[in-house]
Amino acid sequence: MKLKKKNQIKYFLLSVLGLAAFFGIWELSVRLGWVSDRTLSAPSAVIETLIRKLTDAKPDGSTLPQHFWQSLKLALSSFLVAVVVGVPLGWVMGYYKVADRLLTPLFEILRPIPPIAWIPIVILTMGIGMRAKIFIIFLAAFVPCVINSYLGIRLTDPVKINVAKTFGASPFKIFTTVCIPSSLNMVFTGVRLSLNSSWTTLVAAEMLASSRGLGYMIQLGRTLIRPDIIIVGMITIGITGALLNKLLALLEKKIAPWRYRDEA
């Protein structure tokens, strides 16, 4: 017991040491001039900028919370559309052979195209407005939703389907009462992946003409040669992504508390 506690302290100190070393070397390499502070800002400068940007709109026109809110709205609305469309589509494709045969070949071709590769054609057809951005992020978030929901249905334990059959359940009832619930853990994995990719595609989508948003802020940071602003944007994206992920994990625990592949 005592030994365990001792080890815990040891490992905690090691983690702190790792982080401290990383930031220490980073800070030193800028302070000692190994790297020019015009290309990389020291952590201390980044924190300074972060605090200042909470209220200051200079030099990019908006405060950090304004950028953040803009990006969050954009990413979440696209993500929600992707979930609402993608998950039921995956379910139907997984259960009904007609839908599977009709849509899967098309999906297989569209799937490997990276979301960023859609940008030029989206600009031509939809312009550079909000709609175009939502569409690009939607594409990124859509794919994992469909794939995982599809697989979730396909991996339904055939014995559980047989149980429902012996109860006299119709194919539709089997779909709704057995296949969909047993796919939920897979669906959540898909939704998490899709949240990740909508958040990571954000910067690319905001490269299309925009005047606000974290992606815009980062872009402008490059133009203005302000590495501190770029890093503040990156950190905000990183922390928010991690938090959203945590939030979804909590939601899954609430909605689908049984564990994936829990043999029952």
């Binding site: 012996t166 359940a169 029952a264």
Partner: peptide, 26 residues
Amino acid sequence: MGEIGFVFQKYALFPWKTVMGNVEMS
């Protein structure tokens, strides 16, 4: 269908349903 009861080797309970939910399902 529904007029023959079946007990399966691997239980095949529905993990998202409670004991009551499983028993009352048919």
